[in-house]
Nucleic acid binder design. Structure first.
Lengths: 342, 342
DNA sequence: TTGTACGCGTTATCAT
DNA sequence: ATGATAACGCGTACAA
């Protein structure tokens, strides 16, 4: 027994005005006398009227909605999402809510179900891309978005010739800071964990910072201390075991992300090495779990709150046709037990 | 220089059929000859046509979208969301994607910005409520939803007389299992951490299970070993300190959620007590961080993957007017270092 | 199997 | 400051 949903016409009748006036009154849109505004508001409350957003969107060609597309390599994620992105997601949600935008989210599992039609089908006014995934795989699709002038921003490093607008942490500086910290504690044989192929430009930037800090300290960059690794705990675990067993002693590990660092700590423990006494460990991200590991993880914090704000803010600028401003976010070193802290 | 978006009329012209036929062909909806279907599909691809979902939704009175409303007590959450809910969020996203539904998400920060109009304004076909928040505060609003026959499901325990459909873990059994495990390791003075007021019925159920397991083991329920605590790490930390300092020795802690248990472990360490030798600890949830704590946290796992599926599945049933089936999910004990494991 | 005609509920435009 | 009217783009009876 469904009651008919009231329309603006019903409100109009009840308030004794025309339907178009109702529309204006509710939107605070144009000049409406205080008197009628109140009568309309009251009538609306009485009938429990809510604007039909589909009609509104259709007419106004605006959705007041953003879409967040999270993509991760299926290889990397065993049905679990990297905590860092969950944190980003949380801050993006809040940022868009503060701006009065709804947020639609979608996890892209394979590159096939690429449902970036969100904009084309007028489901959203703009798109936010987020992921540690393989960027290369998405470039052509993203270019297509660019061609049809869809508004979108991507979380990540600026890659030469990449279409669209990238916003991200200053990965190079962050990594420099991490490695400087290790060097400052007297570490000399510092392993790097992470995939630095062109598929993972963020990790590549962090590797660049790693090299930079080593050189600046006059330390050699030892190739054997680099271990390719996708972004997960298990992978980090395996990678460090292989590295230790094959290439001998290390006194520190810099993980390109916290999950890798955590995996490494587990591997080190398995080999009877103490953290930080024998091997100091620094990660990158500062995920929620980082303070709770054993020992607590020293890491480079990415300011997800600021990141969410910046992504949303800039996306809205794009939607309005205004120019984008800042695109880089400062990181900060968080010292905990795994290197230099308690 | 924006190009005009193609409409179904444009496709119709290009394919040499009527607009209504285009609509049918694209929806695979009615009888359409293979021939015309192909011509239409080709024309659509050529013009890069996408259905305007607002028009579609308006016309069909269906959105193919679900809304996820996450609410947490502002007291409890200092701008950080409980990892458990992030995990739920992730699984719900996937579940609804699998069903071909878009997901709209919203974090309810205060009870004021109660934007549960998602259904009333035809933004979504159904709602999912999720939260460790104060249930009582939401009951009346939820009742109103029930009155206007909005389709919605709530993650949580079944509370007598509560409107709507609740779906959740079997908190009592889970807690029983947790405490049995502690008892089985010879623990006798087992503290309980968590708010068991009517505001937190889930925690209350877990307390019920705690009491049940103690009684079944012939152990006394010692009131002094209960500590009220909201769901956060800091609160757990403080609570255990107070409890130890005031009420003397304990040999185990059962935290109503993992964050509380983790906080407790930190507090115990601060007082020089070893986990699990001096005090064994068991949590509830099995959040992402649980395996990484020191020692790894023994806990009751809530099957978030199954939960997400069940919530979405049942919500869709409600939307279709079909009856709801299962509403309880089994938990499982995960033994790790903090009690009985390595 | 396909075409015709209308309506979904709102916002925009042009009057007054 | 308000009213009348025309779109917005698609789905669906109904007719053919």
């Amino acid at each position: 027994m469904r009651v008919k949903r009231p329309t603006s016409f019903d409100i109009a009748e009840l308030a004794g005005v025309s339907q178009s006036t109702v529309s204006r009154a509710l939107r605070n849109d144009a000049m409406v006398s205080e008197d009628t505004r109140l009568r309309v508001a009251q009538a609306a409350r009485l009938l429990n009227y809510k604007v039909d957003v589909n009609a509104r969107n259709l007419r106004s060609q605006k959705t007041n909605t953003l879409a967040l597309l999270l993509y991760e390599d299926p290889v990397t994620s065993q049905s679990l999402i990297n905590p860092f992105f969950l944190s980003m997601l949380s801050s993006i949600t809040k940022a868009s809510a503060r701006r009065g935008y709804d947020l639609l989210i979608s996890f892209q599992q394979s590159s096939d179900d690429w449902s970036a039609d969100y904009a084309a089908s007028k489901r959203a006014d703009g798109l936010i891309f987020l992921g540690y995934g393989d960027y290369l795989r998405y470039v052509d699709k993203i270019s297509r978005l660019d061609e049809v002038s869809t508004a979108f921003v991507t979380w990540g490093p600026v890659v030469a010739g990449q279409p669209g607008h990238f916003i991200g942490s200053d990965n190079v500086r962050g990594a420099v800071e991490a490695v400087r910290h290790l060097v400052g504690r007297g570490r000399k044989r510092i392993a790097f964990l992470g995939d630095i192929s062109e598929h993972c430009p963020e990790f590549r930037d962090r590797y660049t910072g790693y090299v930079q800090a080593l050189e600046e300290a006059g330390l050699p960059v030892i190739e054997a201390l680099y271990a390719d690794a996708a972004a997960s705990e298990e992978v980090g675990h395996q990678a460090i075991l292989n590295l230790i067993d094959r290439d001998g002693p290390i006194d520190a590990v810099f993980g390109a992300c916290d999950l890798l660092a955590i995996g490494a700590m587990n591997g080190l423990r398995e080999r009877g090495l103490r953290v930080p006494e024998d091997v100091a460990v620094v990660g990158f991200d500062d995920i929620v779990a980082a303070p709770f590991t054993a020992p607590p993880l020293t890491t480079i914090r990415q300011d997800t709150a600021a990141a969410g704000e910046l992504l949303v803010e800039n996306l809205l600028r794009l939607i309005d046709g205004r120019p984008i401003e800042t695109t880089q976010i400062a990181t900060s070193l968080v010292v905990r037990g795994s290197c230099g802290g308690v």
